[in-house]
Computed example of a mutant assay.
Amino acid sequence: MPKKSDLVSESASRLRLMAFDVDGVLTNGDLYFTPNGDEIKVFSSLDGHGLKMLKEAGVEIAIITGRKSEMVAKRAANLGITHLFQGVEDKRAVMRDLRSQLDLSADHCGYMGDDVVDLPILRACGFSATVADGHDFVKEHVDYIARKGGGAGAVREVCDFILTAQGKLAAMHNVYLTA
């Protein structure tokens, strides 16, 4: 019988779409506002490069988040992410529609979230992940728990895990060693 880790790697190896929450996953979850009411978000450049590598390897990237922020739209544009869904109440329905649009089964889709509101979409995907500082109840129901926290390299860790499961990470790293 395969180990659970082998089954998780197998699930990650099938991914053709990986979606991410923002607050608590792509950021540390803290909400910063200026005196004028403008929102400020801090994103990890390590996470950003992981997302670019995943996309380069042929995995579609999506952001599906409950909040709406111009900063998220700018970050998505900067990373070339075209599947951006903000202000979403039913993330599972958005994933179902995106799966249909891309002609993918649930087994080919993954999501990374951090709180209980993410459980419906996490449980509707073939691969699910959370951050080290995610809610304890969420950790009980996902395939992969990152060692790092939200906004602090957890997304990169998951991207590297997926790329390793797909047998692509070593070749992508080797490009930087042959320069």
Score class of each variant (00 low, 15 high):
142 V>W: 03
169 L>E: 07
93 A>G: 02
108 H>E: 14
62 A>D: 07
68 K>G: 11
18 M>T: 12
121 I>C: 06
127 F>Q: 00
80 G>N: 10
129 A>M: 09
53 M>P: 03
19 A>H: 10
118 D>C: 05
37 G>N: 09
85 F>G: 06
74 K>S: 08
37 G>T: 02
134 G>F: 09
10 E>C: 08
156 R>G: 11
145 I>S: 03
148 K>P: 00
134 G>H: 10
50 G>M: 04
77 A>R: 13
50 G>E: 04
97 D>P: 00
142 V>T: 13
6 D>T: 14
17 L>Q: 06
32 Y>E: 10
103 D>G: 06
100 S>A: 14
143 D>E: 10
170 A>V: 15
42 V>C: 09
120 P>M: 13
78 N>C: 04
147 R>C: 09
126 G>M: 08
61 I>H: 03
69 S>H: 11
40 I>M: 14
92 R>S: 03
28 N>D: 15
129 A>D: 03
152 A>H: 15
137 F>V: 14
10 E>H: 15
148 K>I: 01
110 G>V: 04
94 V>D: 02
57 A>G: 08
142 V>P: 01
138 V>Y: 07
125 C>S: 12
151 G>F: 10
54 L>F: 07
21 D>I: 08
122 L>S: 02
167 G>K: 10
41 K>S: 09
89 E>V: 13
156 R>F: 08
162 I>P: 03
21 D>Q: 04
110 G>C: 06
65 T>H: 11
153 G>P: 06
14 R>C: 12
75 R>M: 10
31 L>N: 08
104 L>N: 02
173 H>N: 15
65 T>R: 01
56 E>G: 04
151 G>Y: 10
97 D>A: 13
34 T>A: 10
65 T>W: 03
37 G>A: 06
1 M>H: 10
65 T>I: 04
44 S>I: 02
143 D>M: 10
89 E>T: 13
22 V>I: 14
68 K>S: 15
105 S>Y: 00
62 A>P: 02
90 D>C: 06
113 G>Y: 02
16 R>F: 05
159 C>D: 00
115 D>F: 05
98 L>W: 03
35 P>G: 12
8 V>N: 08
153 G>D: 06
77 A>W: 03
72 V>W: 02
64 I>R: 03
159 C>A: 14
161 F>Q: 08
44 S>M: 06
44 S>D: 14
64 I>D: 05
126 G>P: 06
147 R>H: 13
7 L>N: 13
31 L>A: 11
83 H>L: 13
12 A>C: 15
44 S>C: 11
149 G>D: 14
2 P>R: 09
65 T>G: 07
158 V>C: 12
112 M>A: 12
128 S>C: 06
75 R>C: 05
153 G>T: 08
18 M>L: 15
172 M>A: 14
113 G>H: 01
5 S>M: 11
